[in-house]
Design a protein around this nucleic acid. Sequence first.
DNA 1: ACCCCGCTGTTATGATGTAACATTGCCGAA
DNA 2: TTCGGCAATGTTACATCATAACAGCGGGGT
Lengths: 164, 164
Amino acid sequence: MAARGAAHNTAQAHQTHNHRECIDDALKRAREICAGRGAQLTPLREKVLQIVWRSHKPVGAYDVLDELARSHKAARPPTVYRALDFLMSEGLIHKIESLNAYLGCVEAGAPHSGQFLICRQCGATEEIVDAKLETALDQAAKRAHFAGERKVVEISGLCARCAA
Amino acid sequence: MAARGAAHNTAQAHQTHNHRECIDDALKRAREICAGRGAQLTPLREKVLQIVWRSHKPVGAYDVLDELARSHKAARPPTVYRALDFLMSEGLIHKIESLNAYLGCVEAGAPHSGQFLICRQCGATEEIVDAKLETALDQAAKRAHFAGERKVVEISGLCARCAA
DNA sequence: ACCCCGCTGTTATGATGTAACATTGCCGAA
DNA sequence: TTCGGCAATGTTACATCATAACAGCGGGGT
């Protein structure tokens, strides 16, 4: 994995960290990943990725559109959805199904479905990578003789800060 | 739990079982549950529940609407969404977030979030109740100091029949 | 008789997502 | 150099999913 700052890219840190660095890290990593694959991270796609990364909260496609339109007047829904589809296919963002919204991926590059903790109070959403949970999902599917492919795991509740 | 036929109410069985009995069981159980709670399972709501139970595939709200309108010309979107909201609040159906569709609950009465195996080929969706997976979800949230409430678990892939 | 309240009716609109075809710009082959 | 192909983007229109807001109706209690 490319070098990156230690505490960045985690939702827990979102109150305290330097978020500009956090975004910059994500964009830099995205460029590296795409360059290594020959995938075209165009200015438009990179701009959409940057908008998604503006916070650690899932962002709706039309919110992305509104923001994008400030600098790109031609933006229309297909513009945004195409960019989001590209970013998802490259594993740079995830869709949060229970919110119909999109979130930057903290493990970009490695294909995975993602596991999310969504605070219903502040909206901050943390992507976790929990090997035991992953195993439990695989085992559960296996017990049911089901060939699992994509896994949606979204736990909503209260983050530590909001619960306090 | 009320007495009910052994192989009913499972998606695996959906190719072979007597689905009329399956629906009847679900409706009977729903009536019992609502009666026991003083919840009003009106004819309209029961009809919607019956429509959702017509198959073991998640059904969209507008598909419910189309079907409902055959016997109930006044049906409009709010009619359906209100009934679906009621049925969800009573734990009689689940929403499948990744499909924006609704499915009869096989463990009606006990409040739970549900874990689903969704076949991308045939659409059949099985609700599983996997204690180990449940534990793994709780543990994962706990490790992240997150107070989990609602859990969305939807694994899509191929059911045993379609994989063969 | 009257009110309250839950359920349903009704109209309109908001929010999310996609189909289909046009245009642009680059790059390689002839 | 010109042309043809192809990926990305532009553009118009529409499909799909969901809810706001207010009206009407009917049963149960006082």
